[in-house]
Design a protein around this nucleic acid. Structure first.
Lengths: 144, 144
DNA sequence: TTTCAAATGTTACTATATAACAGCACCATT
DNA sequence: AATGGTGCTGTTATATAGTAACATTTGAAA
């Protein structure tokens, strides 16, 4: 999906959810979209400062939290970063593959795998929540 | 496994791997063992300072990195913390279930699930590395 | 006993994230 | 229009996490 299309889809999704994609949030989303792969909060902060003069960390973190909550971004804990959700509007659980060599990210549907894991966990009385699955490895280009 | 048993197993495992469980590393391991569930690096640092007077962050991070490398601890990225591996000597890939309500941790064998995921990823040309799988949810006690 | 490599100590710094409160914009009701 | 509430944003300060770079020690092999 191209950038404009993503923004449009984001608008629709926020409207559906009854939450507001404000100017600031949209600007932050655009800054994230402007990068390939994983983006760090402080990178977004720096970009935002270039565009608006000044900005403090909470401004960025709030917007990023909102976008994650709205299902538009995924937080990649292992890298302290964020990626654009490549399945906006259709999938709720992603299998996120991060290449440790080049940093590229690929998102697949994780629901089937998570169902299996859910059963395994349920056998221990553990109820796993809805979430993404992050795995690291080497992408096709970097496997050599 | 009790604490003493774990240390003994850790000794054996390090010897097998040809790496050294030095006094410092053992002390850090004991400090981690002294906690239930997830432990933070700076918590370990504080504990270490209580026991030895002074200690700086690199001291703790080096020891923790070593212990993770040796397969004795797992790093839990989502929580910026560490847990004791509950399958020392037998499993290399853990399915780590973290209860978001009480913070308790439960580690299962993840190899079968990861094999499936590995196949799914391989279909995209992605080779996932050996690793742990961290999932959050509610443990039996907290499900109500 | 010399010598090298690994481990640890030390200082300083960079990076990541949040608390707490202040101010503002919008809108709903009066 | 005034009132007041709610959610968003601004601002300051600080808490938490992690690493770079270099000095020093230690222990085992040559």
């Amino acid at each position: 999906m191209d950038k404009a299309g993503f923004i449009a889809a984001a608008d629709r999704q926020c409207q559906q959810q009854g939450v507001k994609l404000t100017a600031l949030r949209r600007q932050v989303l655009e800054l994230v979209l402007a990068h390939e792969g994983v983006v760090k909060a402080y990178q977004v902060l720096a970009d935002l400062q270039r565009e608006r003069g000044i900005a403090a960390p909470p401004t960025v973190y709030r917007a990023l939290d909102f976008l994650v909550e709205a299902g538009l971004l995924h937080k990649v804990d292992a890298l302290n970063g964020y990626i654009v959700c490549s399945h906006v509007g259709c999938c709720h659980e992603g299998l996120i593959l991060v290449c440790t060599a080049c940093g590229s990210v690929n998102e697949l549907e994780a629901a089937p795998a998570l169902d299996t894991l859910r059963q395994q966990a349920a056998a221990q009385g553990f109820a796993i929540a809805q979430q993404n699955l992050l795995l690291t490895g080497l992408c096709q280009a970097c496997r050599v």
